[in-house]
Design a protein around this nucleic acid. Sequence first.
DNA 1: TCAGGACATTGACTTTTGTCAGCTATGATG
DNA 2: CATCATAGCTGACAAAAGTCAATGTCCTGA
Lengths: 326, 326
Amino acid sequence: MPIRSNDQIIHKAAWLYYTHGMRQDEVAQRLEISRASIAMYLRRAREMGIVTITTSNELFSDDVLARELEDATGLTSVWIVPEDRQAMDPAAEMPVVAASVFLELINKGDRIGVAWGRTVYHIADVMPFADLRGVTVVQLCGNLGAPYSYRPDQCTTEIARRLNAEGINLYAPLVLSSERLAEELRSEPVIREQLATISDCQLALYSVGGIEDDSHLVKCGALSAAEMHAMGSKGAAGVIAGQLIDRDGQWMDCGHNRRCMSADLGSIRAIKKRMLVVQEDSKFEPLVAALKGGFASHLIVTASMARRILDRWRTEGLDRNSSGKT
Amino acid sequence: MPIRSNDQIIHKAAWLYYTHGMRQDEVAQRLEISRASIAMYLRRAREMGIVTITTSNELFSDDVLARELEDATGLTSVWIVPEDRQAMDPAAEMPVVAASVFLELINKGDRIGVAWGRTVYHIADVMPFADLRGVTVVQLCGNLGAPYSYRPDQCTTEIARRLNAEGINLYAPLVLSSERLAEELRSEPVIREQLATISDCQLALYSVGGIEDDSHLVKCGALSAAEMHAMGSKGAAGVIAGQLIDRDGQWMDCGHNRRCMSADLGSIRAIKKRMLVVQEDSKFEPLVAALKGGFASHLIVTASMARRILDRWRTEGLDRNSSGKT
DNA sequence: TCAGGACATTGACTTTTGTCAGCTATGATG
DNA sequence: CATCATAGCTGACAAAAGTCAATGTCCTGA
């Protein structure tokens, strides 16, 4: 199609509209054609690449990565903790970012579920003080001795204290010695009611645990290293609120899980805003399992972790957005 | 306060709107804020350079006259600002075209030299925002009080700011009161090093100054009208980066030039892409001198100026392409 | 602690843009 | 020379975006 005179007018229209910021009717007047035609020319100019609209990739690379991850995984919101050259350690920065994001996700009168782990403890530790009267913080899983500073109940209490919110603890051990006892305890009205209200939460905060020898559950003595190994070979991939999940993020029907006093995974998934924070790059596989299991709507990770997830999603063809992007 | 939480939401809005093509109300719904806010965020995203809208400037280079001028003069590339009824005021349009072309000539990691003058100031003033981290903008000539809005250093800084590039200023006066002082200052390591890097630039931007009473140098007080007259009768034809050149575009061995703190003309000529922008038709003779001196590889002029150059080249038999053209 | 200011956010309203059926000019064809 | 096809253009209406005064929120400093 050698008709260049046509392209010329498109170029002119695009220039006047986009570069000079004229309105379509002004452009139409100047070029002495109808505004409808200008609208059409402009569309063609965009299609032909005479004008290009790009979101900045260099300057906001972390934001771009976050958006791409959201697009690929369908997560509501992703925050990337930058791995700045000279900036501080990303792992150290993360709890601060997580705490402030967490705070912003809270609405008046919300009920918030908090699980436990090293990460959650660190977040509690840097949680800013706020006046969130009317908010309730509930403990998502039973108690256990701590290799770190806080026990689960103390963690919940600390967060509640800083937010000026009400803290509700789950007064039960995380793991019982028999399934029967766990079952009976779960039937106790006080406990049952508390576990039942978990799905009413508007927001949950947790991390995902690994299944290595140095994992949280092992360190706390909830599970021996040998048992953990065994579970690993049976397909366990990570830990959510004290419970083992498989590679697809499904609850595993195993002794440990049956003896566990913790939020039902279905209840957790029912919470609208599920904020998952992962500090260590070594937790990649557990994180993948947690994401596949639908345990996150809001994710906070390092840039490198984000890239790995993105890679995985793309290679496995899980990318929800396989079609056009910039 | 979360780091850049504001920018995050702006980036997200821009991403959904521009990259995904969602409507503002859809974005608003997704981010759970009002559509009015989205409209505001999007405006800021454009202002901040989070999204960039660029228009092709083919309109100005795709022109018979431009081709002829390139052929005749051996210039790499010529852009013609038309003077027809449909176009904007050519004098006002030129800085816009120049800024757009300039932007297109920049590559990743480039070092760019910027001189000073009314034209360059106007270009800086309409320079679009862009995402050019890694680019360095260096000041080609020393500083001087400004009859216009910017001093040379501010001009460099402004361009760097809009491009998100690094700006490097030359902290020295444009003209010193004695040759000895100028010489000594040029030997100062800081200054010397900076002047030495100028030939490493990949791109330079400047205009050419006239030698009339209302010329830039005279208005700024760098040279009295009488001195300028005297230089004119000694053969001065124009001004490049604060320095007088003769009719052949050669550096003039005169007091002013020796007292001048500016890029060595040889260094400027060593820059591969030398973008010369001339707005006023009255600058015809200075422009001819600049072209003869090899100060341009890329030229932006009005159509009438282009025709005058072409005439001159042909009457003087300088046309490189006297034989048949395709 | 509270008044006051700065700034973000919103709903309601206005302006601008997108769309499409139908009109017009052109030119190719039988 | 009439007819048809085609592409381009337009008017009128619907949809979307822009704007602004009013309101809400947060912070500062007395």
